[in-house]
Simulated scan of single mutants.
Amino acid sequence: MDSKTAGALLNEFYSLVDYTKPSFQISVFAIAFNPTAWNFVARNEYRNKTITKIFGGNARYGTYFLALLIFSFGILRDNLYHWALLDQPQKAILPREYATIVPAVLFVVGQLFVITSTWSLGITGTFLGDYFGILMDHRVEGFPFNVLRDPMYVGSTMCFAATALWFERPAGLLITLYVYIVYLIALKFEGPFTDMIYTKRAEAKAAKGQ
């Protein structure tokens, strides 16, 4: 493929993305809002125990409350994405013989990663319980963590891509790339902070001679 052909394809792709649609802009905002907000809330909880105090010092109830918020806002984000896709130009992306099977498989595998991650970590492990002081005894090493380092984020990204392919909206693929970048940035903040929490626990245990 020469540069002229590639340029023409890129121009055609971008012509099928309507950035002016409010639904597109709201979806992009919601995608960035979720991981950003929960990182801020979780760090505040670690330092100030704000949510724990609301629930009378019960960290587990606080974690469940945050889990409900994260889950609910996740559903809202997905609905806003769906709304944004239906508001965008439609064009076949895959050959007809693959137009159904590829997004279906991609979505099923993505959901498998998300669901099995949640099952392996549990509610408190999935929804930032370590920021509330509810730490896991051992690192989870079974499936899907023996396949991917961050299976929940990868699985979620796969579902975004699958939905874009299913509804044949090129704009959805652009949003999926944006989702992937947002998750990478979130992990740059979330990963080191979580590691710090567990390192401090290990140091505290070592100081006590346990």
Results as ranks from 00 to 15, higher is better:
6 A>K: 13
25 Q>R: 15
85 L>W: 03
137 D>S: 14
44 N>T: 10
133 G>S: 11
145 F>R: 07
146 N>K: 09
110 G>M: 10
63 T>P: 01
104 A>Q: 07
94 L>A: 04
16 L>P: 04
59 A>Q: 11
6 A>Y: 07
208 K>P: 05
98 Y>L: 15
109 V>M: 15
118 T>D: 09
206 A>I: 01
178 Y>C: 01
176 T>E: 00
124 T>D: 12
160 F>I: 00
66 L>N: 09
88 Q>C: 01
73 F>K: 03
106 L>S: 05
62 G>T: 09
52 T>S: 13
44 N>M: 12
29 F>K: 02
124 T>G: 02
138 H>V: 13
21 K>L: 06
51 I>Y: 14
185 I>R: 02
127 F>W: 15
52 T>Q: 13
192 P>F: 05
97 E>C: 12
64 Y>F: 12
68 L>A: 15
188 K>R: 14
11 N>L: 09
15 S>C: 09
138 H>F: 11
23 S>H: 07
174 L>Q: 07
11 N>Y: 10
122 G>Y: 06
32 A>K: 05
109 V>P: 09
189 F>Q: 04
144 P>C: 04
100 T>W: 13
40 F>R: 06
50 T>Y: 12
127 F>R: 08
90 Q>G: 10
200 K>E: 13
103 P>Q: 03
86 L>I: 09
112 L>A: 14
117 S>P: 08
124 T>C: 11
20 T>Q: 15
33 F>H: 06
15 S>D: 12
119 W>M: 14
135 L>Y: 02
174 L>I: 01
59 A>V: 01
63 T>N: 11
45 E>T: 08
69 L>H: 09
93 I>C: 02
69 L>V: 08
190 E>R: 10
9 L>H: 13
27 S>V: 00
197 I>Q: 11
171 A>P: 04
164 A>F: 00
196 M>D: 12
80 L>N: 01
209 G>Y: 03
27 S>Y: 00
77 R>N: 15
63 T>D: 05
116 T>A: 13
209 G>T: 00
208 K>N: 07
